[in-house]
């Protein structure tokens, strides 16, 4: 138990740290994406600014800040300005319930590596991401241009459709672990099946099906290839952010990548055992290892994101809807029923 002042100090420090790390991670995910996709297409990617182009995110940031911030005359100003803010706020808020590792002792207090552990943590993430749709939808509407409006409409339809599959794919995990708290979901995945297979949810029963559904729905929720219809360049110029420039555009960009990272964290926690892994060595190493495992799993997930982007073409709009409703949705329900049967049989 901590007293109020220590609680406040610990929380503020953690929030500042997490936001700083998240934004740095966002910047370097963009760098990684440009580099990896570049190599996949037989190009070098960013290579001029710093060694291996490592300072490229910094240069991009400076450019975004210094460029002229255009506001076209035909837009509806209050919402045009509010929309990127909504997107960024929702993207940054959902990271607050993610547990990054075990609790660490600092100056005699046990501090968990998580901004706050809510017993409805998963619901908070789902709720905040569902509010995030408004950033995209309102940007499309307030821009008052046909490309933006079409992008906004596509985004809202797509997100509402795939949110159902996303939610249903998570219910299986909830049945297995019996809690909404992300900390407890991670706890429930400690240990091994038959002594060598880690007891992660992805290996439990047919949860790999749920993982596949989650993967697809997550790609659609974050508007990534092959589901990036809201910003399809070939049809809609740039979709919902056609009219945006400079920092407002950068905010949408940041929101998209922050959402990718949150989704990767969530996948790690729900299916890949969070920070669980073999612990060894001196006490200090034992404290750091869970965070290391967590970050490594998130990195694998992010790399898959980029890999898919470099590999797959974009869906057509009707294919997107048919895939969501006629394939993923029945599959998610079937998985739910089978999981419930397995859990009922084992208990």
């Amino acid at each position: 138990m901590l007293s109020l002042p220590i609680f406040l100090v610990a929380s503020v420090v953690k929030i500042v740290l997490v936001i700083f790390i998240l934004l740095t991670a966002v910047a370097y995910t963009v760098w990684l994406e440009r580099k990896v996709v570049g190599h996949m297409q037989n190009r070098w990617g960013p290579s001029r600014v710093g060694p291996f182009g490592l300072l490229q995110p910094l240069a991009d940031g400076v450019k975004f800040l210094l460029k002229e911030d255009l506001t076209p005359p035909h837009v509806y100003r209050p919402l045009f300005i509010a929309a990127p803010m909504i997107a960024v706020i929702c993207a940054l808020t959902s990271i607050s319930v993610i547990p990054f590792g075990t609790a660490i002792p600092v100056a005699g207090h046990i501090i968990p590596l998580q901004i706050t552990d809510l017993n409805i943590g998963l619901l908070v993430i789902l709720g905040v991401t569902s509010i995030g749709v408004y950033g995209v939808a309102l940007a499309g509407w307030s821009s008052n241009s046909k490309y933006s409006l079409l992008g906004g409409l596509r985004a809202s339809a797509q997100m509402v459709s795939y949110e159902i599959c996303l939610g249903l794919s998570l219910v299986g995990v909830l049945i297995v672990s019996g809690s909404f708290s992300l900390q407890q979901i991670v706890e429930s995945q400690r240990g091994y099946f038959w002594g060598f297979i880690p007891k992660w949810n992805i290996f439990y029963g047919c949860q790999f099906v749920a993982f596949f559904i989650y993967l697809m729905a997550a790609y659609a929720e974050t508007n990534r290839i092959p589901f990036d219809l809201p910003e399809a360049e070939t049809e809609l110029v740039a979709g919902y952010h056609t009219e945006y420039s400079a920092m407002k555009f950068a905010m949408f960009f940041m929101a998209e990548y922050a959402n990718m990272i949150t989704v990767a964290c969530l996948a790690t926690i729900l299916f890949l055992g969070g920070g669980n892994g073999p612990l060894f060595g001196p006490p200090l190493l034992r404290l750091i290892l869970p965070t290391f495992y967590f970050v490594a799993k998130v990195f694998v997930f992010l790399f898959t994101y980029i890999w898919v982007r470099g590999t797959l073409p974009r869906f057509r709009y009707d294919q997107l809807m048919a895939f969501g409703w006629k394939f993923l949705f029945p599959l998610a329900i079937a998985n739910l029923v089978v999981t419930a049967l397995v859990v009922a049989y084992r208990s």
């Binding site: 569902s130 509010i131 939808a137 509407w141 409006l149 906004g152 409409l153 809202s156 339809a157 509402v160």
Partner: peptide, 13 residues
């Protein structure tokens, strides 16, 4: 907020 109102907005837009 995340479901029904998005559909509302979808139509109203």
């Amino acid at each position: 907020v995340g479901g029904i109102m998005v559909l509302f907005l979808f139509v109203i837009m």
